[in-house]
Amino acid sequence: MAPVGDWTPPACWYEPYSADEFAKDTEDGYSTVANDPRQPSYAKSSVGQFRNIYKDGKYKNYNKDKADQGSWWVATRDPDRWMDDAAQVCNKMPFWVKNGETPQVENAVTPEILAELAYNKVRLPDTEVTLAPADTTKVNLPTWAWLDKRQFKPVSVTAALNAAGVDIQATTTAEPVSLKIDPGTSDATTFPASGECPIINGRIGEPYAAGKADKTPPCGVEYLRSSGNGTYKLNATVTWKIHWTGTGVAGEQPLPDGEFGTTQDVTVQEIQAVNR
C-alpha cells in the first residue's frame, strides 16, 4: 500500500483542550521534567515558567473556574514532521477562547484541516497491471492491460475531533479515474493512443478472454521491436481524484489529485517464422 501522493498536509495546527485536560497535560509535563535529575536546569526553569503563566500568573488555576465558558487552544505538531520548518509555524502560546468565538489564529483546526490530515493517511493499492500475454509478449502483438476491479475502488479515511465543545469531522476519499501506460520505449503503440486509459463502467481496462485475439484492447500496448536480451520497463500510473466532505460544508470539496505508479519488466520477442 502506498501514500496517495506527493502533497503534504499541514505540519502543525491548533486544537482545543478543556481546562481540566490542559491542566493535567501541563502538570504532567512539568512533573516529568522537574523530577528528572538528568534534565538541565534551564529545561526545568523553562517548564516552570510556562506552568506559572497558567497556574498562578496571567491566568489562575488554568481557568478551571471558567471551564463551562471556553477552552484552551494548543499548538499540535505532526509527530512525523516535528523538526520540519513548517511545524514551527504554530509557535503561539496556548490561548483561551470563549465558547462560540472563532480562534484568531492561522491553522486553527477546521473540517478542512482534518480533511488534509486524513489525506496523508489514505493508503492505496500497489499499481500492478495485469497483462495478457503476461511478462513475455511478441512484436506486433497487442498486449491487453487492466487493473483488478476488486482492489481499485474508492478509498476513504475519516478524521474527527470531539473535544472541549468542538465536534467536527471530515472524510477524505480517493477515487481512481485513469491509468497511464508508458511502454518504456518509443518503439511501441499504446491503446488508446494517448496511453491514458479511463475508467469505463467502474473498471480500468478490460480483461483478456478467449475470442478477443483479433480485437484492439481498450487499454494496452503493442511493441514494435524486440527487447533483445533485456526487458522494457513498462510504467503504469494511476491518477486518483481526491475530495472531502465535512461538518458544516456543503457538497464535495477538492484536494490535489494523487498519482502513484509502478514499473514492470516486459520481455518482447520476435515472432519466429519457419521457412520450408
Rank of each mutant, 00 (worst) to 15 (best):
M1D: 12
V4S: 11
T8K: 00
T8W: 00
C12N: 03
Y14G: 08
Y17N: 06
F22C: 02
F22H: 01
F22Q: 01
D25N: 11
V33W: 09
V33I: 15
Y42F: 13
G48S: 02
Q49W: 00
Q49Y: 04
F50C: 05
N52I: 03
G57Y: 10
Y59M: 13
N61H: 14
K64G: 04
R77T: 07
P79A: 04
M83H: 07
D85K: 05
V89W: 02
N91S: 01
N91H: 01
K92G: 05
V97K: 10
G100N: 14
T102P: 03
T102V: 14
P103M: 08
V109F: 07
V109Q: 10
L117W: 07
Y119F: 11
V122L: 09
P125A: 13
N140C: 06
L141K: 14
P142I: 03
T143P: 10
W146T: 13
W146R: 10
P154V: 03
P154E: 07
V157D: 12
L161D: 08
L161C: 09
G165E: 10
G165T: 12
I168V: 15
Q169M: 13
T172Y: 09
A174T: 08
E175Q: 15
P176C: 13
P183V: 02
G184I: 00
F191Y: 14
F191G: 01
A193C: 05
S194M: 07
G195T: 04
E196M: 11
I199H: 03
N201S: 15
E206K: 02
K212I: 06
K212L: 09
A213F: 04
D214N: 12
K215Q: 09
T216R: 12
Y223Q: 00
L224Y: 01
R225W: 01
R225C: 01
S226T: 09
Y232G: 05
L234F: 00
T237A: 06
V238Y: 03
W240N: 10
K241T: 05
H243L: 05
G248M: 14
E252C: 09
E252D: 15
E252Q: 15
D257K: 12
D257A: 13
F260M: 08
Q269N: 01
Q272K: 04
R276I: 04
R276A: 09
